[in-house]
Design a protein around this nucleic acid. Structure first.
Length: 478
RNA sequence: GCACGAGUGGCAGAGCAGCUAUGCAAUGGACUGCAGAUCCAUGGACCCGGGUGCAAAUCCCGGCUCGUGCUCCA
């Protein structure tokens, strides 16, 4: 079945037809590293990670590029406050980004170009825009002139030139003193004293905010490419500016075949922002919740939906993930052979999973099927028979929840962790068994207080007692 | 104000014209001294008002409410 993708430009789901058969060029706008990464960055990265994983799963050869805007006003201002070089700030936050994304099981992109490494390409692009009459030089830099191709205005947002003129009201005066029109945007900003700067035909300065993505996508993916993505907050003005720059520079349209945008994160129903005090960096979140549980929470809704991040969603995800993980781990310990392709119910789950993912990467539908198979697997484990099917269902989870959704650690990690706790268990066994015998005696004598005291004691040792039909079993608490 | 999107059971969240969504929570049961885990079962929803259809949560029109964008932002 064909893959359908929601394209912001046409506001509809369209079948994915790539420029080159079997290949996908994908550029996703990355971060401006002026502060530690927050969970909105995680959502963006995970959204595109899932898209890339699924396209690869479907046999596409994906070239996935995501950038770092490693020089901009905010980085410079942080650097000035701290009295350090701007690159120190950028590098520190890029390191943080990678650390966070690795722990969230985000597969690395094929390249992470940086603005500071792309300056010659940016200058070349600006020169061409000037040559073609789409840009002009002013006292404080070079600007793109919107009026040279007004038909491109509002391609993603549906806004018209007049709307923005009206909406901007009196707030436009202080942006870009040299602009002829407030909707024009900077391509090159001349440096003020003490700012990082590069030589250019127009004087020392640095690139404007939008041009780097046009230059980097051109450099890495060529004059036309399949998918361009980013957070939905970038639709305007950033991505519309890119359309102006790339299409006017290259002289053809469309440069981008599909525009894909992920939804934002809200916290307790409000926009996440520093001023509201509801701001979660990824490190904050990981202090409270396991990375894969956070990942689970962030793909519980399809990528385009806004996600309301709160304690409920975290708790919910934790219980779902724990159930799946426990079943999977137990399944891994079952020896034997089994292929999910041999079992109709597992095949049906797989097919629903696949058609959900084919339909604009609907991870919610995918997760429902993971929950389904988890349920099947747990029932099988409970029953203990049908080893072949246990192995088959475990394989299903490994493939879909693990490889595709990235919700599981590596098998050998799970096994070594299991062995570690087994060792611990064996060490504790004699003393636990003795206490359990005493408790059983107390229970037979119906002395519940004494029995409960023993259970409390075991609980302090990190042992959870569970009474079942065949007497008590125990396990180590997490 | 303008643009875009959304309003589904206690909560999260699919479906987007006819067929049980699902999970958590709740309730009942199995098991139980209690607790926990597990299993089985049950109830419960489509913002409001019109319209089109044999049939509407699903399409159309009009409201209302919320979110996002219009300024740096994933």
């Amino acid at each position: 079945m064909a893959i359908r993708i929601y394209d912001t430009r046409t506001r509809s789901k369209r079948e994915l037809v790539t420029l080159e058969e079997g290949k996908v060029g994908l550029y996703a706008c990355g971060i401006t590293p002026y502060s530690p990464s927050h969970i909105g960055h995680a959502r963006q990265a995970i959204s595109f990670d899932i898209i890339v994983r699924w396209l690869r799963n479907r046999g596409f050869q994906v070239n996935y590029i995501t950038n770092f805007t490693d020089v901009d006003d905010k980085i410079i201002s942080v650097a000035n406050e701290e009295g350090v070089d701007y690159l120190e700030v950028a590098n520190r936050n890029i390191d943080d980004y990678f650390r966070c994304m690795d722990s969230l099981n985000v597969i690395r992109a094929d390249a992470y170009p940086r603005v500071t490494e792309t300056i010659p390409d940016i200058i070349e692009m600006i020169s061409q825009l000037l040559d073609k009459g789409h840009a002009y030089e002013a006292d404080d830099g070079v600007y793109f002139e919107i009026d040279t191709s007004p038909e491109k205005y509002g391609l993603l947002t549906g806004q018209t030139l007049d709307m923005v003129r009206a909406g901007a009201g009196g707030r436009v005066s202080k942006t870009g003193a040299g602009k002829r029109d407030h909707r024009d945007f900077a391509l090159w900003k001349l440096a003020k004293v003490g700012e990082p700067a590069w030589e250019s035909p127009w004087g020392e300065g640095r690139p404007g905010w939008h041009i780097e993505c046009s230059a980097m996508s051109l450099k890495h993916l060529g004059e036309r490419f399949d998918i361009h993505g980013g957070g939905s907050d970038l639709i305007f003005p950033h991505h519309e500016a890119e359309i102006f720059q790339s299409e006017c520079c290259l002289g053809h349209e469309p440069v981008v075949q599909y525009w894909v945008h992920n939804g934002m994160i809200n916290v307790d129903g409000e926009k996440m922002s520093k001023s509201l005090g509801n701001f979660w960096t990824i490190s904050d979140a990981l202090g409270k919740v396991d990375p894969l549980i956070l990942r689970y929470a962030l793909i519980n809704a399809p990528y385009r939906q806004p996600v309301d991040f709160n304690q409920v969603i975290v708790d919910d995800s934790e219980s779902h993930h724990n159930r799946m993980f426990a079943a999977y781990r137990d399944g891994l310990m079952t020896k034997g052979k089994g292929d999910w392709g041999d079992f109709p119910d597992l095949v049906e789950s797989a097919s629903r999973f696949e058609s959900g993912m084919d339909d604009d990467f609907n991870t919610r539908i995918a997760i429902v099927e993971v929950q389904n198979v988890t349920k099947i697997l747990r029932a099988l484990l409970e029953d203990g028979e049908l080893q072949e099917k246990i192995v088959a269902a475990t394989g299903w989870i490994s493939n879909f929840a693990g490889d595709v959704l990235g919700l599981l650690p590596e098998d050998n990690e799970i096994i070594s962790e299991f062995e570690r706790t087994e060792t611990e268990r064996v060490d504790l066994a004699p003393i636990v068994e003795r206490l359990l015998e005493k408790r059983e005696e107390a229970r037979l004598e119906r002395e519940w207080e004494r029995a409960d005291r023993i259970r409390d004691e075991l609980s302090k040792m990190g042992v959870v007692v569970e009474d079942g039909t065949d007497g008590a079993t125990w396990r180590l608490s997490d």
